[in-house]
Amino acid sequence: MNRWYMLTVVGKDRPGIVAKVTTALFDGGCNLGEASMMRLGGSFTIMLMVELPEPAGVLQRLLEPVASSLGLQVHVDAIDGQLHHHREPDARISVYGADRAGIVARVTALLAEAGLHILELESHVAGSRESPLYIMHIEGYAGQGIDALRRVLERVKGEGIEVSLEPVETMIG
């Protein structure tokens, strides 16, 4: 029986976490699906699709030893997601500017209004402590077309952030 969980693991970053977590999962009879690991602000974060024909508590217990030895927080959700459900982005948006609160909310609210379905988002705070720089990279599916996105992004001009939009033209060969 296929039963998929979304496993979230967060903790202080150090080398070897992925190996130890995934070895515990493999030894416990799990199969892994798609995963995304990021180091965010010095923390280790990973989200993993895990297939295990057992209740959620079994998965949670399986990870207890490795979680306590590495000081990791583990969270398990049953999901009805499945593999082979990729959706292709057709728009890429890059944003950067002096860091301040509200950039993500401002830009993504406009994009949502213009029909963007965000498929991937990653952002970084770079620069220095005194003058931090916010950088965000979004890929998504433009439900109302690229021009709709272009039009709403015109509105952030003059707000101190640089926004560029380009179509993603996937070549299938």
Binding site: H84, M171, I172, G173
Partner: peptide
């Protein structure tokens, strides 16, 4: 850099 897919590699770009 740009995005590609392949008839021989379904469901991935």
């Amino acid at each position: 850099t740009s995005r590609e897919g392949c008839l021989s590699v379904p469901d991935y770009t």
